[in-house]
């Protein structure tokens, strides 16, 4: 008898294929069904796919508007769920999934995948170890290049997506900020269409956030960066970290690196304002595998989920909603 997790993947776009590859590399999953509205897969109807394959787990890789229905239905059937972000189009969607989760017995994990990138893991290590002191503030920039058909993408159709660049990409940065700093509230938020003026969703989002004990985070999420860009600065009481670039499937966000240095007020490094910097670069992206392994361990071995929990989802969607709210 196989001990593999019988798994169906719902939504076979870029993310569905990426998850399929990751579960295949892991080896602990048995793919029992694939589904997409585009023909060419085992099913075109997600409910039929679930009912007929009766999987132990599903990977939900669909557009945002369908996510809550699938997640809630799967949990009702006692199926474990891995869902891509965002956790629905809005906070109401997330709360609906939270209700289903609370009444069911399934594992529910969301794909806040950036936590598993090597540079992010190293940053979290430095934060937790306090080797550079305590974190004081974080500033993050996450930018997209856009493309000719950008305004026509489903991601910019609010009925399907729920929001624009903030919900699509800025949400990752917000999740990391919460992970690094703790619970945040929005001090100031603004979303706007600075260039794509006829698009129904925002092309730019700005926010200043704060923890209860006074740590600050600032976010700039942009669809008008005109190139792919991921940068995060983390200021500590005794040092600094810069995260630059992110290894992705397209490799378009540049080399993934973490640079750190200690404050050097006594100029031990020889020049004021120019402390010795150390940089680690990574040429492999293990994030999909790490993330898959955590889901597997939670389902099969009963290990508690650390990342991408429903609490993480609720926390970050509360921030997203608050930023949108302040812009209305």
């Amino acid at each position: 008898m196989t001990n593999k997790i019988r798994t169906a993947i719902l939504g076979m776009g870029v993310m569905g294929k990426r998850r399929r590859d990751a579960i295949s590399r892991h080896g602990g999953f048995e793919l029992v069904g694939t589904c997409d509205v585009v023909p060419g897969y085992d099913f075109t109807d997600w409910k039929e796919c679930i009912d007929k394959t009766n999987p132990d787990a599903v990977f939900v890789c669909t557009i945002n508007s369908v996510i809550p229905d699938i997640v809630c239905y799967a949990i009702e059937q006692g199926i474990h769920v891995f869902s891509e972000k965002p956790p629905g189009r809005n906070l109401a969607d997330t709360l609906r999934m939270e209700d289903a989760y609370n009444t069911g017995n399934s594992i529910l994990k969301f794909g806040f995948n950036h936590r598993y990138h090597n540079s992010i893991i190293e940053a979290k290590t430095l934060i937790n170890s306090k080797l550079l002191g305590g974190v004081v503030c974080v500033r993050g920039i996450y930018g997209k290049a856009g493309n000719v058909d950008f305004t026509k993408e489903w991601r910019n159709n609010p009925e399907l997506s729920g929001g624009g660049i903030l919900l699509d990409q800025g949400i990752h940065m917000l999740d990391l900020m919460c992970w690094f700093l703790g619970d945040l509230t929005v001090e100031h938020g603004n979303v706007d269409r600075l260039v794509w003026r006829n698009m129904p969703t925002e092309d730019s989002a700005f926010a200043v956030l704060k923890t209860q004990d006074g740590k600050i985070a600032s976010l700039h999420s942009s669809a008008i960066q005109w190139k792919h860009k991921f940068d995060m600065d983390i200021i500590f009481t005794d040092g600094y970290i810069a995260l630059n670039g992110l290894l992705t499937g397209t490799r378009s966000y540049g080399e993934e690196r973490i640079t750190y240095y200690h404050k050097d007020l006594e100029i031990k490094d020889g020049k004021l304002g120019n402390p010795l910097e150390h940089t680690l670069c990574f040429d492999s992206d293990n994030s999909w595998d790490y993330e898959t392994a955590e889901f597997f361990d939670a389902v099969r071995n009963g290990k508690p989920l650390v990342n991408g929990t429903i609490a993480d989802a609720k926390r970050v969607m509360t921030l997203v909603e608050s930023i949108y709210e302040q812009s209305r």
């Binding site: 090597n118 010795l276 910097e277 940089t279």
Partner: peptide, 12 residues
């Protein structure tokens, strides 16, 4: 293995 390379920014 974590494939990483490490370097320092030096003035000279």
């Amino acid at each position: 293995m974590l494939k990483a390379y490490s370097f320092t920014e030096n003035e000279g």
